[in-house]
Amino acid sequence: MRRRHTFRDRREAGRALGELLREREWLDPLVLGLARGGVVVGHAVAEVLGAPLDVAVARKIGAPGQPEFGVGAVTPDGPPCYDEHSLSVLGLRPAHLEAACRAERAEARRRAVVYQRGRPPVPRAGRDVLVVDDGLATGVTARAALRSLREDRPHGLVFAAPVCAPEAAAALKSDADEVLCLLAPHGFRSVGQWYTDFRQTGDDEVLELLETS
C-alpha cells in the first residue's frame, strides 16, 4: 500500500514542488537542478514555471569508512564545505579528508564538463536562482552549492525540495535567502523513504533532460 505523502517518483515530486513555487513572484527565474537526482525534479519545476533549467554540481565528502554519511561537500571550484558538528562528533579534521576531497572535486569537475557540453553556464547574476534537489538530508551538499552560487550575485538564492529534514532545512537558511519544502516530516530518516521509485539517476538522463528543457 502506498503511504500517505509518498511521491511516486522524482518527476511527480517536481510537478508538485513546481505548483508550490508558482504561487510566488520571481524575478527572471532560473532553475538549477542539483546533480544528479535534483535535475529530474528541477526539470519538472522548470516546466511548471516556464523557466530555463541548468545544472549545479556538488559532491558529498563521506566519513572514512562511512561514505554515505556526508561530513562535507565540494563543488568544481572553491573551498570545501564541512559540517563542523559531524567532524567534532567523529573526531575528524579537514586534513583527515584531503584525499576524499580531491577525489570528489575531480568527479565534480568531470560532471560539470559533461553536463555543460562545452557551453557556458546560464547567467545567474541579477535573477532569482532556484536550487532544486530531490530532498534534503544533512544539507551539506546543498550548502556547498549555495555558497558557490552566491558568488554569481543572483538577485535571490532559494533552495527548494519536495522533502526536507526539518533540522537541515532550518540550518540551511543561513546560506539561502529562503528554503522551501513541500514536506518537512519529523519522522524523516532518509530522502528515499518518501519515494516509491528512487532509482539512481545517470549521466545520460541528466543530459537528456538538459537538452529538452
Results as ranks from 00 to 15, higher is better:
residue 122 V to T: 14
residue 126 G to K: 00
residue 75 T to R: 08
residue 58 A to N: 07
residue 75 T to K: 05
residue 28 D to C: 08
residue 70 G to F: 01
residue 126 G to L: 06
residue 22 R to H: 10
residue 75 T to V: 14
residue 102 R to M: 11
residue 33 G to V: 02
residue 82 Y to E: 07
residue 133 D to A: 08
residue 92 L to R: 00
residue 43 H to M: 01
residue 98 E to M: 03
residue 66 Q to P: 03
residue 25 E to F: 06
residue 34 L to A: 05
residue 19 E to P: 02
residue 123 P to N: 08
residue 75 T to E: 11
residue 104 E to G: 05
residue 28 D to W: 01
residue 103 A to P: 11
residue 61 I to F: 09
residue 117 R to Y: 00
residue 136 L to M: 05
residue 142 A to E: 10
residue 121 P to T: 04
residue 126 G to W: 05
residue 114 V to L: 15
residue 69 F to V: 01
residue 109 R to G: 08
residue 90 L to F: 15
residue 67 P to V: 05
residue 58 A to V: 02
residue 113 V to H: 09
residue 23 E to V: 01
residue 82 Y to Q: 13
residue 114 V to C: 09
residue 115 Y to L: 15
residue 22 R to K: 11
residue 31 V to S: 05
residue 42 G to H: 02
residue 34 L to S: 09
residue 123 P to W: 00
residue 25 E to K: 05
residue 16 A to Y: 04
residue 28 D to N: 14
residue 119 R to S: 14
residue 44 A to S: 14
residue 74 V to R: 10
residue 56 A to M: 12
residue 142 A to W: 14
residue 107 E to P: 06
residue 71 V to Y: 04
residue 45 V to N: 09
residue 47 E to W: 00
residue 70 G to E: 08
residue 81 C to R: 12
residue 110 R to M: 12
residue 103 A to L: 10
residue 104 E to V: 00
residue 62 G to W: 04
residue 41 V to A: 13
residue 46 A to L: 09
residue 83 D to C: 13
residue 18 G to C: 07
residue 36 R to C: 11
residue 127 R to D: 15
residue 59 R to D: 10
residue 100 A to I: 00
residue 106 A to F: 00
residue 59 R to F: 08
residue 61 I to Y: 10
residue 18 G to D: 10
residue 62 G to T: 02
residue 39 V to L: 14
residue 28 D to L: 07
residue 118 G to I: 11
residue 20 L to A: 15
residue 70 G to I: 00
residue 67 P to K: 05
residue 129 V to E: 07
residue 56 A to I: 02
residue 118 G to N: 14
residue 68 E to C: 07
residue 58 A to E: 08
residue 31 V to E: 05
residue 27 L to G: 10
residue 74 V to N: 14
residue 44 A to Y: 02
residue 79 P to H: 00
residue 107 E to K: 01
residue 72 G to F: 05
residue 115 Y to R: 01
residue 23 E to Q: 15
residue 31 V to A: 06
residue 37 G to W: 09
residue 141 T to D: 06
residue 51 A to P: 13
residue 113 V to G: 03
residue 78 G to R: 08
residue 76 P to M: 07
residue 58 A to Y: 06
residue 107 E to W: 01
residue 73 A to S: 12
residue 23 E to P: 04
residue 126 G to F: 01
residue 31 V to M: 04
residue 33 G to Y: 05
residue 120 P to A: 09
residue 123 P to H: 03
residue 30 L to G: 12
residue 47 E to Y: 00
residue 103 A to Q: 15
residue 142 A to V: 02
residue 69 F to W: 12
residue 71 V to A: 11
residue 52 P to D: 09
residue 80 P to M: 08
residue 39 V to K: 02
residue 57 V to R: 01
residue 53 L to R: 00
residue 91 G to A: 05
residue 35 A to D: 06
residue 132 V to I: 15
residue 53 L to G: 11
residue 30 L to H: 06
residue 82 Y to D: 12
residue 93 R to V: 12
residue 77 D to A: 14
residue 123 P to G: 12
residue 18 G to W: 09
residue 41 V to N: 09
residue 137 A to T: 07
residue 70 G to R: 04
residue 42 G to A: 04
residue 85 H to E: 15
residue 44 A to F: 03
residue 42 G to Q: 03
residue 54 D to Y: 06
residue 23 E to C: 03
residue 109 R to K: 04
residue 114 V to N: 02
residue 63 A to W: 13
residue 100 A to W: 00
residue 127 R to P: 13
residue 89 V to L: 15
residue 83 D to W: 01
residue 16 A to N: 10
residue 27 L to H: 14
residue 79 P to W: 00
residue 84 E to W: 05
residue 76 P to E: 06
residue 121 P to N: 07
residue 113 V to N: 03
